[in-house]
Computed example of a mutant assay.
Amino acid sequence: KDYRETADSPEALAGDDAVKAAQEYLDKALKELGKDEVALTLLCDSSDPAKPVAEYIQACASKLKGLNIELLPQEKANRLAKMKDHDFDIVLTGWIPDFSDPTAFLGLMTEGNAYNYGSYVSEAYDAKLAEAADAATPEERWTLLQEAEEILLDDDAVSGIYQMGGAVLQNPKVTGIDHHVFGVSNLYKNADVAE
């Protein structure tokens, strides 16, 4: 089965319950910080689909008393430079895996990974991924990867916001195109057009 079908859903709350829970967490954080409000900058691309998604996140955050999210739209090269310099509060970025395995995403958040722009560090997370790499069976590996993901999500190190999709319109006379959901989306080396 697909990994996502066998792992717990990361979306435990929805709607009003999510807003209520977020407000409670924010109130607790503000109290610990001794502040009435916190302002954060959300670094994002200045083009679609990132900018409208960032605007949506900003609108959702505006429902919370004490949180102000300011958008910082940048051209992709500038956004990447800021990410590499760790010059952001929050960043909206994306990742397309180049192989079909949960570690194509989970491995990004290990300590020292060049793409771990938020500098997330968790010994328990790294240990769980190392344990999964040495698992005796595929089933044991899958379970360990799910446990690692739980650690990552519990720590709120990263949040999945949306998944891009696409549609393909293909002439029935064209055959042999390989469509992939990871890596290069279409391979044409075996393509053929019937007369």
Rank of each mutant, 00 (worst) to 15 (best):
D48F: 05
N116H: 05
Q58V: 08
K35Q: 15
D98W: 15
A81N: 05
G112D: 10
F182A: 13
D85M: 11
E140A: 06
K1C: 15
E139A: 04
D8G: 09
A191L: 01
A54P: 04
A132H: 10
R79A: 15
P172S: 10
A136D: 07
M83V: 15
K128G: 01
K173N: 09
K1Q: 15
P97L: 07
T93W: 14
A7R: 06
S159D: 12
K82H: 00
S9P: 01
D27K: 09
D36P: 05
M164T: 04
G183N: 02
V174G: 00
S46R: 14
L72M: 05
G112L: 10
E195P: 12
E195H: 11
L106A: 05
V193F: 14
F182W: 15
Q170H: 13
L67T: 05
A14Q: 02
V158W: 10
G165N: 12
G166A: 14
W95G: 00
V193I: 13
A59D: 13
A157K: 00
A104T: 12
G15K: 09
G176F: 08
Q163M: 12
L145A: 09
E55L: 09
D27F: 10
I161H: 06
D87C: 01
K35M: 15
G165Q: 07
A61F: 02
P73Q: 03
S119T: 12
P102F: 07
N113A: 06
I69P: 04
E195K: 13
I57F: 07
V193L: 14
L64Q: 03
L64F: 11
E55C: 12
D192Y: 14
S122A: 03
E55N: 12
D126R: 05
R4S: 14
E70R: 01
Y117I: 04
E140F: 05
W142Y: 14
L153T: 03
P172W: 13
L108G: 08
D155A: 08
D17Q: 00
L64T: 02
S119N: 14
P138Q: 10
S47H: 11
G118I: 11
D98N: 15
G34H: 11
R79D: 10
L42I: 13
T143Q: 03
L71Y: 02
E139F: 12
E37Q: 12
A59S: 11
P138H: 09
K76T: 11
A167Y: 07
L33W: 09
